[in-house]
Design a protein around this nucleic acid. Structure first.
Length: 475
RNA sequence: GGGGUCGUGGGGUAGCCUGGACUAUCCUAUUGCGUUCGGGACGCAGUGACCUGAGUUCGAAUCUCAGCGACCCCA
């Protein structure tokens, strides 16, 4: 059975698995005829919709949603020197309107700082206008020259959630960065995706930021995926875009800013972190179909089974559950495979035997089977599944993190996962770590229990006192 | 940035080296009808492809060049 010709590649062959799952589970169609641009299938878009709705409701508590233009005039884009340097290689330019060349060429936003901040300069007048916290969910464009990958490295990021805030003081902005990380932690928790939070080394921070805090997860092949960042912009942009406010004393002051973003990489992380050799495994929180009902239709009792299935379906809908009644003319087994591939958390089977015994067969995505009495038991089952998926992902990530005290240990660790080791903070030592391990120093001041085990230890290179750093290969 | 492999129905492939018999193989998918249905059903009848352009040639899926695209490895 398992070696049918159309078997999915195993997760251990992650690259092949990832490409196959996107097509077979109908998430992205990669056949659009431009490199780096991909199309959302409706099923994939539905995952996106539920995921971004959660993100929206987290942000809406304390932010306002908006939309700024896609096109940024040359003269605004070119204002902030570090920012330009960071992006100039990968900006798409609109140079023509019809047949005539434009006087002012227009950039397709690679990110929206330079679209938003000229307006912030107009909107921010007084300390009473602050803090200002806006976000938008938009597409952005980057002319990637490396090999592109659906949901991970794109030329059109279709789902960039970017928040931009303005504050009176540096400390308040720093507090907002922490708030962003708190929101992102909560977001990823509800996706069951475990994360590592660290500060990017200075040479790897956002162009035009004082510092960058990053959120990473670990993919099945041991490489990390950056799935969120929060930047303290200090006054880099407020200086160049003249974003000032009048303080209590009537003096004009430069504002402090932050920005933080999440892209459809969050979807890539859900797919990759949870998926198995059978297909997708979706947490109920974002599964387009949380429960599928498979009627077991046998000859004479067909109508009876269908009626019972319809009743069960409407009961579940009444409980607010996203349920699908699969009435297609296929063998039940074929339907099981189909919905397992699509990551449906819970399957209910209903046939003559169940009707006779007054029960329903419930099978979770990990193929654990049990009998339940009624639809009322389903919400609790879904909660259990959500928890089980989360715990499984956490255990899996735990197995990919190694606490290291020597360069040799790091070298071995990064072959199949990430290393956490003490680093003094000096660039020279980081360069040596990278050169000798064939991996990157991804983060410093790593947070959480892993870092605590190495904080204060001597740097793996120079022996001076250091703090927990995250070392690994990344996407 | 450097190197490699490759592009054949919707997906996966055979054929290519050695140009002609290719009316292009097989699996899957898909349409219609019938029989089926508790873990990927079966029968019958259908649908559906040589990436684009230029070249070589009597003749190109097959050889050459370019473009576009995909995947893998290294920095």
């Amino acid at each position: 059975m398992e070696d049918k010709t159309d078997a999915l590649p195993p997760v251990s062959d992650f690259s092949a698995w990832y490409n196959e799952i996107l097509r077979r589970a109908e998430i992205m169609d990669v056949r659009y005829p431009v490199k780096g641009l991909y199309v959302w299938y409706p099923f994939g878009f539905s995952i996106r919709k539920h995921t971004y709705n959660m993100l929206r409701s987290l942000l809406d508590a304390d932010h306002q949603e908006t939309i700024f233009p896609l096109l940024i005039p040359d003269h605004e884009f070119m204002k902030e020197a570090e920012h330009i340097k960071g992006f100039e290689e990968e900006v798409y330019w609109v140079t023509h309107g019809g047949l005539s060349e434009l006087d002012v060429k227009l950039a397709l936003r690679p990110t929206s700082e330079t679209a938003i901040y000229p307006m912030y300069a107009l909107w921010v007048r007084s300390h009473a206008d602050l803090p200002l916290k806006l976000y938008q969910i938009v597409n952005t464009f980057r002319y990637e020259t490396k090999h592109t990958r659906p949901l991970i490295r794109l030329r059109e990021i279709t789902s960039f959630k970017e928040a931009h805030t303005v504050h009176c003081t540096w400390d308040e902005a720093a507090g907002q960065v922490e708030e962003a990380i708190r929101l992102y932690s909560q977001f990823y928790h509800s996706l069951g995706v475990p994360i590592l939070v660290s500060k990017r080394p200075d040479w790897d921070k956002f162009p035009g930021a004082d510092y960058t805090i990053a959120v990473d997860t670990i993919m099945p092949d041991g490489k990390t995926l950056q799935i969120g960042t929060a930047h303290h912009l200090g006054t880099h942009f407020s200086k160049t875009f003249n974003i000032t406010y009048e303080d209590l004393a009537g003096e004009q002051q430069l504002a402090y800013q932050t920005c933080y973003g999440i892209s459809e990489r969050c979807i890539a992380s859900v797919i990759s972190v949870h998926g198995d050799d059978t297909g997708l495994v979706l947490p109920p929180s974002v599964a387009p179909v949380q429960v599928v009902i498979i009627p077991i239709i046998i000859g004479k009792r067909k109508d009876e089974v269908l009626a019972a299935a319809e009743t069960l379906c409407s009961e579940l809908k009444g409980l607010g559950i996203r349920v699908e009644l699969d009435l297609r003319d296929m063998r039940p087994g074929a339907k099981y495979y189909h919905w397992e591939l699509h990551g449906v958390p819970l399957r209910l089977e209903l046939g003559p035997r169940d009707i006779d015994s007054g029960t329903i067969v419930a099978v979770d995505r990990f193929k654990q089977k049990q009998q339940i009495g009624s639809a009322a038991e389903v919400p609790a089952l879904l909660e259990e599944i959500q928890k089980a998926i989360t715990e499984r992902a956490e255990a899996s990530m735990e197995g990919k993190i190694a606490i290291c005290t020597t360069i040799e240990e790091i070298r071995t660790a990064v072959e199949s996962g990430v290393a956490v080791a003490s680093w003094c903070g000096e660039r020279d030592c980081a360069d040596r770590i990278e050169a000798e391990t064939d991996a990157s120093l991804l983060g410093r001041e790593l947070r959480g229990k892993h870092a605590e085990k190495v904080n204060g230890n001597s740097c793996v290179i120079c022996g001076r006192e250091g703090k927990g750093a995250l070392i690994g290969r990344s996407y």
